[in-house]
């Protein structure tokens, strides 16, 4: 008599949990920025609640800081414009994801759109056909962002020395760029933007970032061939 051994099926990790797990390194990367942003916001004369509220209402670190700084500097309308210029890239993220999420319910698209920011966009691009993967990571990131900025705003004394940890963000940028630069076109665009970002970093209101991004896109768009970057 022969017996056939059938191994039980290995349960697959749900997509939302896989997304949450994939978000962990990106959460590590945004932690120093969140803590330092929280510290900076907490010192603004606008009131801690108003400063922290930007984390959920605007949910974009560089725009949050630019908005509050410009407002404290006495420029209300300029503050709004600066925040929107910095966040203009979100329009392109929205355009890029729209065809993929077209068939999702309206409420789902509103939630997914609200959570759309650089790290969550990375996840959305990683597995473009798995909406639950995106939402799992995006929700965890949102919660984490509220916690780390809140810690900086409300409990500045508990924020640790960020000297080594502050390297996490640029290192994460490098790791993400390595995956995002796939051909000569994206390499040209990214190289131009990096040089522009460094050269124009001192422009007021993070305007240098916007100019560097526009220059990068312009440089990349004149490259026609899609020659692969060798690994």
């Amino acid at each position: 008599m022969t017996t056939t051994l059938i191994s039980p099926p290995v349960p697959e990790t749900p997509a939302w949990r896989a997304g949450a797990q994939a978000m962990v390194p990106l959460m590590l990367a945004v932690t120093p920025q969140g803590l330092t942003l929280g510290l900076a916001l907490g010192q603004m004369p606008t009131g801690r609640l108003a400063a922290w509220a930007t984390s959920s209402l605007i949910y974009s670190g560089s725009a949050q800081l630019a908005l509050v700084s410009a407002y404290v500097g006495g420029a209300g309308l300029t503050a709004i414009v600066v925040a929107l210029v910095i966040n203009a890239r979100l329009l392109f993220y929205s355009a890029a994801m729209a065809p993929l999420w077209r068939d999702r319910p309206l409420g789902w698209r509103v939630l997914a759109g609200y959570l759309l920011i650089d790290p969550s966009y990375v996840l959305a691009q990683e597995k473009r056909r798995e909406p639950a993967y995106y939402l799992g990571g995006a929700v965890v990131l949102w919660i984490w962002w509220q916690l780390v900025t809140g810690a900086g705003v409300l409990m500045p004394s508990v924020v640790p020395d960020l000297k080594v940890l502050s390297a996490a963000a640029p290192l994460c940028f490098v790791a993400l760029l390595t995956g995002a630069v796939k051909d000569r076109r994206s390499l040209t665009a990214a190289g131009t933007a990096a040089v522009g970002g460094a050269a124009l970093a001192t422009l007021p209101g993070s305007a240098g970032l916007a100019v560097a991004m526009i220059a990068g896109v312009a440089a990349g768009s004149v490259i026609r061939t899609g020659k692969k970057v060798s690994s």
Binding site: D118, V122, A194
Partner: peptide, 10 residues
């Protein structure tokens, strides 16, 4: 190009 450019500028 938007994503690599945004990350590179930062």
């Amino acid at each position: 190009l938007v994503f690599p450019v945004a990350i590179a500028a930062l």
